[in-house]
Each structure stands twice: as C-alpha cells, then as structure tokens.
Design a binder for these strands. Sequence first.
DNA 1: CCTGCAAATGTTATAATGTTGCAAATTTTG
DNA 2: CAAAATTTGCAACATTATAACATTTGCAGG
Lengths: 166, 166
Amino acid sequence: MPERALPYRPHNHDVCVSDALAQARFLCREQNARLTTIRERVLELIWQSHKPLGAYDILAKLSADGHNSAPPTVYRALDFLLQHGLVHRIASLNAFVGCAHAGESHRGTFLICRDCGNVLELDAPAVTEAVESAARAEAFHPDDVTLEIAGVCPRCRPLSGASRHD
Amino acid sequence: MPERALPYRPHNHDVCVSDALAQARFLCREQNARLTTIRERVLELIWQSHKPLGAYDILAKLSADGHNSAPPTVYRALDFLLQHGLVHRIASLNAFVGCAHAGESHRGTFLICRDCGNVLELDAPAVTEAVESAARAEAFHPDDVTLEIAGVCPRCRPLSGASRHD
DNA sequence: CCTGCAAATGTTATAATGTTGCAAATTTTG
DNA sequence: CAAAATTTGCAACATTATAACATTTGCAGG
C-alpha cells in the first residue's frame, strides 16, 4: 500500500488520480462489479481535487464533457461508488470525496478545512475505538458512523482567512 | 442538573418537554435573547418526541396550529435555536432534535436508531478527547464536529426489524 | 405618549439537492 | 442467438433551503 499525500501539502495530484482509478479498477474486477464508463468518469471527476464535489457539480462537468446527462445518472453512479467503498459522502456538505482507503474496511473520519475546502480522510483507530466503546456503553449497535470535523488545516492556520489555498 | 431519561426507555415525556422549555426560557433571559412565540413553539414541536423533525414537518405542524407560515419562518426559528444551543441539526437526516444539554458547552454525539428513529445525545468526553487528539496529530484546528452514529438501539435490538417502537 | 430604530415576521419566488417510474439500450448468461 | 438482468436515458417531481423585500412588532429615548 503506497503512502498517501496529505491533501493540503503540495503533491503531484495526478498520482492521486491515477492511483485511485487503478485501485478502483482492481477492486471492481475482484468483486465482479462493473466499473462502467460513466462510473469511472464520475470517480475521476471526484478525484480531480481533494475538495468534496456536489452531485450537481459532477453533473455540470459531465455536461461539459459533451455527455448528455440528468441527475439520476450522477446519483446512480455515486450510489455504485459509495456501495463499493470508492467514494464517501460528506453529510455536512452534501458532497462527495474520493475514498483514500478503498478496499480497506474502515469508517471514514474527515478533517474538512473551512478555508481551502480540502478534506483529509483520517485513519484513526483510537477514535473508532472510542466511538464504539461509547456506543457499547449504551448497548447501542452501530452500523454507520458519520464523523466530520470542520476547522482550519495547518496550511491555512497561520494566515487564517488572509488568503485561500487551492 | 436533573437526570435525563433515555429516549428509548419508557418515560414521562411531558417532563422532557417542560424541562426543555423551562431551561430555554431561563437561558434566553440570561442572554437577553428573545424566545418569541414562534421560536418557543418550534422548540416545543421539536421536543414532542426524541425523533428528529424535518423543517417541513415543523412547518406542517405550525400550519396545523392555524398558524400561517412559510419555510423562512421555520428556518429562522431554527437558526435562532441552533445559535443558542437549544437544538441540534442532524446532518445525516436533514432534521433537528432538542438539545439534551442546553447551556453546557459541548459537542453533540448522537446515537440514531434506524428502527425506531429515536436519537440519544451522548455526553462522551472520551470520544471528544480522541477526536481532538486525532485532529491535533494532523495539526488541524477543529471548530465543529459532526458525529452521528446510526445503528440499532437496545430496545429494538433483540427484535431487530420485527416491530417498530415509537 | 410618540417617534424612530432595530429586530422579528410575512410573503413570494427561486435555488439546491435528491428521487420515482418507465422506456430504451447494453451486457451477461444459458 | 434469445432471454434475462443490469445499466442508462429521460421526464417529471419531491424535498430541503435561501434570497429579497415588504410589513409588523418591541423597545429606548425624547
């Protein structure tokens, strides 16, 4: 498993995209899931940055491709990608980001920068453990955890509102 | 500070409502905030159960009161109640619940039962600590944490889908 | 009291997000 | 190849949320 770049550190982002697509193709083949043209294109669009993309943003980009689409096209592709753990939905933003840990079973924990908009998906076993332990203490059986931390990322912190880092 | 009932245990729910309203009146007086008729009514409607209520559900109930309202009325009341820490928004449901810890500064952690729909607001310092520590490890400065745990509550667990507990 | 300001509410319209249902096309399977 | 299943196209619609501007209400100072 290769090292992942931090979204808010400079990095060659093309590598993120090509890694994500390669990984997606691999996982879909493995699971006999059909990563069709549209689905792959939606995944690629989502990975074009580390900023969550709204369904209608994706729709607009598909249309810009010359592709003839309507909301259900996008939502269906997103459902597929969500089901196969290739993207995550950010409930607090009604938007979608590429999954940084596709193939590993995990619960997403997201750091969302208010300033630059980038999202970092954490792998935080201590948090997961604390959450599960708290649920257990109430005899509650969790299926699905939404954990989204909005704030300011280290790159935006010192300047805090002075400028925007895309 | 009185003990709070667990939403999914039988309890005299009128006490929840009257406690919440009394607490709200107290806090608003203290902060020179105007808990107007509409705002108080919206808070009361939200507290009518431990199930999150959508903005348009609230709107419908206001209309049923004979009250003549439109979406902005509800959203403005909700903004007020959110700002004063009297309700929480559940992002994963686009809905609102009464705050079980009004007046205490806290980050809401919610256990949401898929079956009965009730929501329990946890006070889970260990979780909060783990979340902050994980953010710190990334030099991230959190302002706002969305933590919503969907699953099955103890009352619905053993029967799991057999029946619904309202 | 009343006047004038600020806060709250009313009203209309519209934006943004997400879903349903059915038909056509494509892919898989026997 | 033909039948079945999956995917996509398409039109309409449902739900959630906000913008802009007019009107009313509550309240402080003259």
